[in-house]
């Protein structure tokens, strides 16, 4: 009996819930379309999902440290436009432009971080402002329609992969990059930096009194988010081509994904792996909608419902009595 209960407690833990959800949604997809799990179509799905998963990892760092980053969607759009304009079809410019984009991503994260930590502006406002600034700047710079074009080399990571692999067909570069980002993020959270980031989101005061540089750690989280938006921009640009609208609304999709992964808004709780799994659930859900021939205009409404439901679910868990075991002293008040 106790074992069943314990299992139940574990399965309803928000971090574990997302993996249960992932299985359920995949089961739904499989029921609609048994062919989905054949190598090539699965690879195509993962290639498409990779940018959101990478963005989720970046957003995770910011959220777990106690902030938000609403500027990532606009940053993705800006990066694609910058790439097209600067490369302008010249293969030889690919690497220098990638470097410029990385620096731009870092700069946006740094500005977000410094305004939030040094000027004490709430990150919600800082990054909302940044979103508008980037959005406006793109429109101003491009006059509405982006100019220039991407090089073949630039488009490779988003489009191509290791070809002619048995069973799978193509292993997309995007998938490998996603795995690398995921592994890097998991490792990063196990370092001293990761633990301080977590502690800062949980109890800023306790972390600071323990000597942690809370502001620095949070600023680095924004920079990581800016970098993840840069990588996502490269993949999305390669996959979908140049348009000023590519990033629109992505910030909400990615926050939905992270929250669905059981990462608590306000910080200090949740795992980066679960956040990335949350992104996969969202992508799989959209696939399911496609298969059910539901209009894609339904997506924002579904995302909104998911955000509210996930946060409500987490809040409900927090107000329930604290489960303890007999060996530990039960908490009194």
């Amino acid at each position: 009996m106790t074992r069943v209960r314990e299992l139940l407690v574990r399965a309803t833990n928000p971090t574990a819930t997302v993996f249960v959800l992932l299985v359920l949604v995949f089961a739904g997809v499989f029921a609609m379309n048994p062919g989905f799990f054949e190598g090539p179509s699965l690879m195509a799905f993962l290639k498409q999902a990779a940018p959101l998963v990478i963005l989720a990892a970046g957003q995770y760092f910011v959220i777990v440290s106690g902030n938000f980053d609403l500027s990532v969607g606009a940053l993705v759009g800006a990066q694609v436009v910058i790439a097209a304009r600067l490369i302008d079809g010249e293969e030889s410019r690919t690497v220098p432009v990638l470097i410029v984009m990385a620096l731009f991503g870092i700069a946006v994260g740094l500005v977000n971080g410094l305004i939030t930590t040094a000027l004490k502006v709430q990150s919600f406002i800082t990054t909302l402002g940044m979103l508008l600034v980037l959005y406006g700047a793109i429109r101003l710079w491009t006059g509405g329609a982006p100019t220039g074009s991407l090089s073949e080399a630039f488009r490779t990571p988003g489009r191509l992969g290791i070809e002619n692999v048995p069973v799978l067909g193509q292993i997309p570069w995007a998938l490998l990059i996603m795995i690398a980002v995921g592994a890097g993020s998991v490792l990063l959270m196990r370092t001293r930096f990761g633990r301080i980031l977590m502690a800062a989101g949980d109890n800023e005061r306790a972390a600071a009194l323990s000597g942690a540089r809370v502001g620095t750690a949070r600023t680095i989280a924004f920079i990581l988010s800016g970098l993840s938006a840069t990588v996502a921009g490269v993949l999305i640009g390669g996959f979908a081509g140049v348009s000023a609208q590519v990033g629109d609304g992505l910030e909400f999709t990615v926050i939905t994904a992270v929250v669905l992964g059981g990462v608590v808004l306000g910080g200090g709780r949740g795992s980066v792996l679960a956040a990335m799994a949350g992104a996969l659930v969202i992508e799989a859900l959209f696939t399911l909608f496609n298969q059910m021939a539901l209009p894609s205009t339904l997506r924002p409404a579904v995302q909104g419902a998911i955000i509210i439901a996930a946060v409500a679910y987490a809040a409900r868990r927090r107000t329930r009595p604290v489960p303890t075991t007999a060996t530990a002293t039960p908490t009194p008040s």
């Binding site: 977590m198 502690a199 949980d202 109890n203 306790a206 972390a207 323990s210 942690a212 200090g268």
Partner: peptide
């Protein structure tokens, strides 16, 4: 309010000062 990150583990809290300060 000032000593613990309540949602973190015993271990994470106990090593917080070491984690936060390269000099110690």
């Amino acid at each position: 309010a000032q000593g613990l990150a309540l949602w973190q583990s015993v271990r994470a809290n106990a090593r917080m000062v070491l984690d936060a300060n390269a000099r110690v």
